[in-house]
Simulated assay, not measured.
Amino acid sequence: MHDIVEEFEITFNQIHQHLKELNGYPKNDNFVELLQHSKLKHSVVRVHFDQLKQYAKLRNAIVHERISGDYYIATPHEDVVHHLKSIQKILEQPPEALTFATRPVLFFKTSTNLLHIMEAFSKHGISQFPIYDDSHHFAGLLTNDGIVRFLAQTTENGGNPALHVQASDVLGYEKHANVQFLSATASVFDLEERFEKSLNEDKKLKAVILTKTGQSDDLPMGIVTTWDLIKVDRREQDIS
């Protein structure tokens, strides 16, 4: 009994430390308060929030309501310790952001003919493509909405407005898209932080493009949108 209680306490304290780290080591490091803040940003906490709150009550009963010596008012079940360890493991070694990205990334050059890109929209059912110049510098995100705006404003002249148009010609019709870049080896926590920060700043993040170095002059290895973040929640629910 003493061993399982000790195992529970050690694992719980490790999770508490991870929560402090995720929240920048705030002055108020109350476990439940940290849970409340963390669940807004991170799926692993959000999915296991209610269970972790219950484990906190159990931990308080073990630590503060011990009757004497090794005689505890409550002791954790083996399944509880096992589950707590699985949560701690994810917090300690979160999966890479690339795990949840759409890949491989289909992208085009600024010189690519618009008709070719429109065919790709239809064939792959994708609503946006990264566009790069010949030096592999990111030029912008070309979306189906941008193409519609371009066509709407150029059809007045008659003919096929897309026949001799390049991707670079259409980018000027795109509304400013908030796109950020992140290293492909970054954790899913880093990824979620990017989206959370953009939400707090009222700057909707259209996509996070993952590259080898996290710089925009590297070719994309994966792309993540808000829809892809749903995969994170689903994965954690499957684990639980």
Rank of each mutant, 00 (worst) to 15 (best):
G146Q: 14
E193G: 12
M118V: 01
K175Y: 13
S135W: 14
P161T: 10
P130L: 05
G159I: 07
H136N: 15
E192D: 12
L141Y: 09
F107K: 06
I117T: 02
Q180E: 12
S216R: 14
S122D: 15
I223M: 10
L205R: 08
E192A: 00
V165S: 11
G172R: 14
L182I: 09
S187E: 04
E174Y: 02
K123F: 10
R194I: 09
G222L: 09
L142W: 10
S127G: 09
F195I: 01
E201Y: 09
G222E: 07
L171I: 02
I131M: 03
K123Y: 08
V224R: 05
P161D: 05
F150T: 03
E201I: 06
N178L: 06
S187Y: 08
F121D: 03
V148H: 13
K197F: 02
K175L: 08
G146E: 14
T154M: 11
F189P: 00
N113Y: 03
A162R: 02
A120K: 13
F129R: 01
T226G: 03
V165R: 11
S135M: 11
N160P: 03
P220K: 08
S122T: 13
S111C: 01
L114N: 03
G125N: 04
D169Q: 05
E192P: 03
S216L: 06
F107P: 00
D133M: 04
G172P: 10
F150S: 03
D217V: 15
A167P: 05
V208K: 04
K204Q: 02
G158A: 12
V208C: 01
D134S: 14
K197L: 04
V165G: 08
T143Y: 06
A152G: 04
D190C: 07
D169N: 13
H137S: 10
V148D: 11
L163R: 15
T110S: 15
V224H: 00
A139V: 01
E201V: 09
L115K: 14
S135C: 09
F150R: 09
T225A: 00
K175W: 06
N160E: 12
L151C: 13
G172Q: 13
A162W: 08
I209V: 02
G214I: 01
H176T: 15
A139N: 12
E156G: 02
T213M: 00
I131F: 01
L205H: 06
D145R: 15
Y173T: 10
K123I: 07
M118R: 12
L205M: 13
N160S: 14
S183D: 01
P220G: 05
E156H: 05
E174L: 09
A186F: 00
N178G: 04
F108E: 09
Q215W: 00
L163V: 15
H137G: 09
L151V: 14
A177V: 03
A152M: 12
Q166D: 02
S111K: 13
V165H: 03
H136K: 15
L151P: 01
I209T: 05
H124N: 13
F121V: 08
H136Y: 15
L191R: 10
F195L: 05
E201M: 06
A162I: 02
E174F: 02
P220W: 04
S168G: 12
F138D: 00
E156F: 08
Q153P: 01
P130R: 07
H176E: 14
N200G: 04
G214A: 10
T213V: 03
H116Y: 13
L229T: 02
D202K: 12
T226H: 07
D133W: 09
G125R: 05
L163H: 14
Y132G: 07
S122V: 09
